[in-house]
Amino acid sequence: MDLLINVGLPISLAIIMLSLGIGLEIADFRRVLSRRYPFAIGAICQVVLLPIAAFATVKLFALPPEIAVGFMLLSFCPGGVTSNILSKLAKADVALSVSLTAVISLLSILTVPILAAWAIGHFMGENAPEVSISGLAVAMFLITTLPVAIGVAIRNFAEGFADRVDAPLAKLATALFILIVVAALAGNWQLFVENLGVMGAGLISLNVALLLIGLGLARVANLSWKESKAISIETGIQNSTLGITLAALITGTESGFSPLALPAAVYGITMYAVAIPFLIWFRSR
């Protein structure tokens, strides 16, 4: 188990982020400058409203401290490859979705360590493990930012090679994601069973609320329907593998997968059940 957490988990996340980077082009970052307003609305939803909604959900469902921290860690995570795929299936503005995923993923090296340290201290109090913000930032850079940058560089300088490895990498990333979720659930099975009702209800409620919040704010901001759908998905779909990895980085590996990883692991399953009805609705309009 320690080998899976120490080696397999970081490598798996790095491969997933590399897969994200290979699907990106320099133009995806330049697009932010030409579409400042839609991007700003999406960024506000992800960076500001998402953690606020998670905090409200934690309080509303009176979740145990470790589960509450897991919820907050998940809310700090940006979208991933999944959000881009779902945007395409929903006939949303894929370019906007990709731009948001790319930039917010790179910014997470700054936002996530600080917010994670706050959440640990706020909810766990005296039982909180010591969190090194600088150490977490370095780890975030190595397993998220650097692989994305390498992927973008490969796409920019060797487009043919990027096209060939894109699909196999995506399949490998999916397989690794499933393995990580199963391992995290198995390592905390008793805690998972004991908290499944309240945790599942909280995650599903949060997921639905976020999809609606993103959609509602985009419509109030008078964005197009395609842009609104993209922002809804980017707000409601988080990188659960990063949430699991953050939990492992914060608590270490002495006792296997941390209970802090449970919400992200369960979310990795429930988000599809929540997303499917929205996809059907989005595709019909």
Rank of each mutant, 00 (worst) to 15 (best):
G187W: 07
V7M: 14
N195S: 15
V47E: 06
S12M: 02
L146C: 11
A116M: 08
I114K: 04
E159V: 05
V208P: 02
S83N: 02
W118L: 14
E227K: 04
E254A: 15
E25L: 08
V274N: 08
N188F: 07
L179Q: 02
A167V: 12
S205F: 11
G151K: 08
N127A: 10
S108D: 12
M124V: 14
E25V: 05
G202I: 07
G200V: 04
L210M: 12
L172N: 05
A209H: 04
E126S: 15
K171F: 08
W225L: 15
S205M: 15
A90H: 07
I22R: 04
G236K: 01
A54W: 13
A40M: 15
L262S: 05
A273K: 10
L106N: 06
E66A: 11
T111N: 05
K171T: 10
K91W: 00
I213A: 09
N6A: 12
N207V: 04
L246D: 03
F278G: 00
L185F: 00
A167C: 01
F55C: 11
M1R: 14
S75T: 02
L223I: 09
Y37A: 14
S83F: 01
L262P: 00
L249R: 04
L146H: 05
T57S: 11
L206R: 00
L223E: 03
L260N: 00
A264C: 10
S232L: 08
L20P: 02
S224V: 11
F157Y: 13
G125A: 05
L33S: 14
W118H: 08
A40E: 05
T251D: 13
I41T: 06
F123H: 03
M124K: 06
F141T: 10
A117Q: 10
I280A: 14
L96T: 07
L74G: 06
E66C: 13
V47M: 12
I231R: 03
P277G: 12
V131G: 09
L142E: 07
L191Y: 15
L18D: 07
A95V: 10
M271A: 12
L110N: 03
Y37D: 13
G214A: 05
G236R: 01
R285V: 09
I109S: 05
M140T: 09
I143H: 02
G151L: 08
R35I: 00
